[in-house]
Structure formats: C-alpha cells, structure tokens
C-alpha cells in the first residue's frame, strides 16, 4: 500500500486545492507588502472597470478592489481558522468527556449539544453578534459557538469505539489515570475523522464570516470578502466586478478546502476510498 503522503499529495484534486489555498494564505500573510495602503483609502475615480488603472477596478467610493481582496483574505482566513480551532478544541473536549465517561455525563452533555443543534445556526450566530456587538473576536466566538456540536458528535462516536478496545483496558491495568488514558490512548486514535471534519469546518466558517459581513455584522474597519459583496450589491448592474471578484474568491477557497478535506478523508481511510 502506498504511504499516506503519496495517497494524499498524489491526488490531483488535492494538489489543485492545496495550490489555491497556499496562494490565499501567502496573500493573507503578505497583505501589507502586496498592498501597503489602507484598503479603505480612496485612491481613484469611483466605478473604474477592471484592467484599467487598477487591476480589478474600483468601487462606488473609488477604493481599490484588488487591495480589498488582498486584505479581505487576511481577515476572512484568520477569523475562519481561529473559529474552527476554537470549535474543534471545545467540541473535542465535550465529545471526549461524554464518550469516555458515558452514563449521566453523556446524557447531560449530549442533550446540551442537541439543544445547540436544534437552533438554526445562522440565526443563532446573528443573535450572538447582535448581543455581543460586531468585532473580530466576537465573530470568532459566534462562529465557534454554532459549529462545535458536529465535532463533539464525531469525537464522541470515535471515543465510544476506541474506549472498549483492549489497549485502553491494558492502560487501566497498568494504572494510568483517566485523564492520561484519554490524552495518550484514546484521543490519538480519533484524530483522522477529527482532522477531516475540522478541515471541512474551515469552509463553513468562511461562509459564515462572509454572510455575517455581508449583513454588516462583520468586524468593523476590517476589509473582508463578505463586506465587499455587501457594499457592492446595490451596484451589481453598473459594476459587476464589485460582487464578482470577492464572490469568486469565496467560491474557489471553499471549493479548495472541500477538495483538500475529501482528499484527507480518502488518504486517512484508504479502504473506504477504494469502494
């Protein structure tokens, strides 16, 4: 059988996805170098079409769309990655505890998880932002709050399966504490589904962030792709590029993450991929 690396990187869809994601991350990291000016600064005449003085044109106030796209990549990726990490961390802890201890702990925590899942997640995120006031940190909190339940469920299921394996019993016989068994024996064996679910969650987080910014609930004074679409939507007929450019950026990034996530899944579960 081929190694994990070969199965993962040898997959052309994964290679494409990684290439695009690498570009987005590089742009996000180098935003200040690529577009040193404030993306909110007015740099030219409004509604300048693309491929003129400005590569991607200007918006209704004469701001550079390309600069917005570059700085937007930074905001969007940062919020998406941070909120995913928070969701995965919290969900994994809840899932591990419920799966390992079972019984009453399981009942209480899983009912709580279901409570979170029954509320339509986007409405819930809007309500949270409305209560907390829009800011980058609060965006991360809101997105993480609505996205942890699926992670908790995945981890709980895996922990339930791993917990009954003999090597966990061997650790009990050796005298390991519950916390040590969870961290050294159980959780490392739940990593592959966690990584796959987590990577796909980044795509969802990007969509959440963009949608919230579109509604004007995004981080103020920070350019983001959703905000650009929101600001450009009333001029869609006169200046198509205002919506088109950030829209395509979101589409490609979400698609790339999904390709990489699926590729991870295939590479981590080679037997399933052959079916």
């Amino acid at each position: 059988m081929r190694s994990f690396r070969q199965r993962f990187l040898g997959n052309p869809r994964v290679a494409l996805g990684l290439a695009w994601l690498g570009l987005v991350v590089a742009v996000a990291l180098l935003a200040d170098v690529l577009a040193p000016k404030d993306p909110f600064a007015i740099v030219g005449a409004p509604f300048a079409p693309p491929a003129g003085d400005f590569v991607l044109g200007t918006d209704s106030l004469g701001r550079d769309v390309a600069a917005g796209l570059i700085h937007g990549a930074r905001t969007t990726m940062l919020i998406a990655v941070l909120s995913t990490l928070a969701a995965v961390g919290f969900g994994a802890i809840v899932g591990a505890v419920t799966g390992y201890y079972g019984k009453l702990v399981d009942d209480v925590l899983m009912r709580t998880t279901e409570f979170f899942q029954t509320i339509p997640s986007f409405l819930f995120a809007i309500v949270l932002i409305a209560i907390l006031s829009p800011s980058a940190v609060n965006l991360v909190i809101a997105i993480a709050t609505v996205s942890w339940p699926p992670i908790a469920r995945v981890v709980r299921g895996e922990v339930l399966a791993v917990r009954s394996r003999e090597f966990v019993q061997a650790a009990v016989v050796a005298g390991q504490r519950d916390s040590a068994i969870l961290v050294t024996q159980v959780l490392p064996n739940t990593l592959s589904p966690l990584i796959v679910t987590g990577s796909l969650l980044v795509a969802t987080a990007i969509l959440f962030e963009s949608a919230l910014s579109f509604l004007g609930l995004g981080a103020p004074n920070q350019m983001s792709w959703g905000f650009m679409i929101g600001a450009g939507r009333s001029f869609m007929r006169e200046a198509w590029w205002l919506v088109m450019v950030p829209g395509v950026a979101i589409l490609l990034t979400v698609l790339a993450i999904n390709l990489v996530g699926e590729g991870l899944n295939d590479a981590l579960n080679p037997r399933l991929a052959d079916l």
């Binding site: 394996r165 003999e166 090597f167 019993q169 061997a170 650790a171 016989v173 050796a174 005298g175 390991q176 050294t184 024996q185 490392p188 064996n189 990593l191």
Partner: peptide
C-alpha cells in the same frame, strides 16, 4: 499483578511506539 490480553491486534495502541507502550507501567 499484570495481564496479557487476548487479541494481539487490539491490545496495543496503534499510535504509540512499542517502547512507550512497554514503559507505561
């Protein structure tokens, strides 16, 4: 008192090196 388990495939943690597995006790 220690135990030897039945299934040699399920009784060793696949994500731990053999040395670490033996060293736990």
């Amino acid at each position: 008192m220690q135990m030897v388990f039945q299934d040699p495939f399920a009784s060793l943690n696949p994500r731990q090196r053999v040395g670490e597995i033996i060293a736990i006790g």
